[in-house]
Amino acid sequence: MADRSFEVSRLPGFAFTAVTVFLALYLPIFTLVFFSFNAGSVLSVWQGWSLRWYVEAWQNDVVKGAAMRSLLIAASASAIATTLATMAAIGTTRRRRFRGQTAIYAFINQPLMVPEIVTAVALLIFFGVIKSWTGYQGLGYLILAHSAFCVPFAYLPIRARLEGMDLSLETAAADLYASPWQAFRHVTLPLLAPGIAAGAMLAFVISLDDVVITEFVKSAGQDTLPTYMLGQLRRTLTPEVNAISTALLVLTVLLLTAFFLVNRKKD
């Protein structure tokens, strides 16, 4: 007789499928990272370890420019989106329900529901008109567009954090002679800080990763790293793209790890 207890949650083939799925998810990513250290210039022919392509990418002014632009846009957009999302989250939680609250909530989350290509086309047309009216061609359009689609990503963790906070804390502060501003400054804000940090990190990652909207909104010479890579895919690929991808990947993983650590701390 089999000396094994009956595991109720076990289903035939599920564990095998799951492990295969995880392998399949990571195999392409590891391959990509692996070939970024290839010494040769042909993508999938291994010619020994080298940091050659990182050096080449670093010395390529176009790549460096795109990298700087990506970081600048992501930093500005996440700062703007997080600030506005924090205000909106405070406005739509921790107070008695008011008329239009649901509408505000739906409007803020709207970018999550519209296909990116549609928003991209809309911004192409709209910003095109503004560009020809004002003559301004700068990075402002990209920052504005990125800020907008980052708002819901910043809003959700901040709102979640606010809703998890004990409502009586601000009441207690008011009871102890804190003005509404003092209560916000000394109680709400410090307690909300992890949520704001999480929101800012998500917004940063989302902005850094965007391809479609950036591709449609950018003016000439305003490539970000992702649109630069998309352009490169048309030509013969070199491991340089792997090197850039790996760098972006590392940045994303670092930010996400920080996000999870910050979020775990609250429990």
Binding site: T171, A172, Y177, P190
Partner: peptide, 29 residues
């Protein structure tokens, strides 16, 4: 508003500020 009233409350849930120390909580008002 409550912050202009010379009364203080002990809440059912205590509502202690989790980000402050015991002394900072007591000194808050």
């Amino acid at each position: 508003p409550p912050n202009r009233r010379a009364v203080n409350t002990v809440f059912q849930s205590y509502a202690l500020f989790p980000h402050l120390s015991v002394a900072e909580n007591v000194g808050f008002g």
